[in-house]
């Protein structure tokens, strides 16, 4: 749903010629107001994080992120976000495939289910997972307070990203190309490798970038589920919170700036891929 950037070349092709005008006086005023608001709300506060993290100098930054507890939190966060991204690439693509190419009663319901992790408050997501995979699990599977709980929570909250970026591309993709390849003797593996994967790769990458960015920044769903055990299940955002509570804003900003850089990198990658696809289409 909203978390997706449409990577379809078709959407770009259908676009009518843009007849944008340069700014008039009233629209210029509107832009001024909008930019001021956006700066006050988003740009200046985020900029202050960068300034704050640089404030203590390189040593503060270095000492913070190499302190054993923080380094362990960063390692756990990045590693679990990476695993979750890999699972999402496989299952997200598969889910998108089933949603587009398969027909069965209740498919519309599936569309709603995919978006639930996005719309559900994160603290509720944690509670929800805890009731099936926690100490009172009806299936006897208790992952609470282990590294697996981090994996599970991230898997839940990142579910929609790859599905929603791959789905529109798959809708645009004409199955006749695959049928033609098959009639010319291509094996199913060849079709997958030569036709499907090249077409879907930008969308999968974009979805994976979004999922990874979301994964490393997750907080709410982990609060109840992971137990926040230092050196064990504590993630980067929980570390930031601890620094804030201890009044160490420079320390908090040092970790925050890393998360911020990954978020920016994900958006940059997304923009580049969207542009590349638009050009090719």
């Amino acid at each position: 749903m909203t978390t997706t950037t449409t990577l379809t070349a078709g959407a770009t092709r259908r676009r009518r010629p843009r007849s944008a005008t340069s700014l008039t006086r009233s629209s210029g005023l509107g832009l001024g107001i909008a930019l001021t608001w956006f700066s006050l709300l988003v740009l200046i506060p985020l900029g202050l994080i960068v300034i704050q993290s640089a404030d203590g100098g390189w040593h503060t930054f270095h000492d913070t992120i190499t302190s054993p507890q923080t380094a362990s939190a960063l390692r756990l966060t990045i590693l679990q976000a990476f695993y979750v991204t890999v699972v999402n690439v496989v299952f997200g693509t598969l889910i998108a495939w089933v949603l587009v190419r398969d027909e069965f009663p209740g498919k519309r319901l599936l569309e709603v289910i995919i978006d639930i992790p996005f719309a559900l408050p994160t603290i509720v997501a944690g509670l929800v997972l805890l009731s099936l995979y926690g100490p009172k699990s009806p299936i006897g599977l208790n992952v609470a307070n282990t590294e697996r709980s981090v994996f599970l929570a991230l898997l839940f909250v990142t579910l929609p990203f790859v599905v929603r970026t791959v789905e529109p591309v798959l809708i645009e993709l004409d199955p006749e190309v695959e049928e033609a390849a098959a009639s010319l003797g291509a094996s199913r593996f060849t079709i997958l490798r030569r036709i499907l994967l090249p077409a879907l790769a930008p969308a999968i990458t974009a979805g994976a970038a979004l999922a990874f960015a979301r994964g490393i920044s997750e907080y709410g769903s982990l609060v109840l589920l992971s137990g926040n055990l230092p050196n064990h299940t504590e993630v980067a955002s929980v570390r930031i919170l601890t620094y804030i509570e201890n009044g160490d804003k420079a320390g908090a900003a040092s970790i925050a700036v890393i998360l911020l850089a990954v978020a920016l990198a994900a958006i940059l990658l997304l923009q580049l891929l969207t542009r590349a696809v638009a050009k090719r289409g």
Binding site: T3, L46, Q52, A213, S237, V238, I240, K249, A256, L259
Partner: peptide, 18 residues
């Protein structure tokens, strides 16, 4: 699009700094 990718904790910290 940035606000969708920024960690909620980072958002809180940023607003606190401002």
């Amino acid at each position: 699009d940035l606000p969708l990718s920024v960690s909620p904790v980072v958002v809180g910290l940023a607003l606190l700094l401002a």
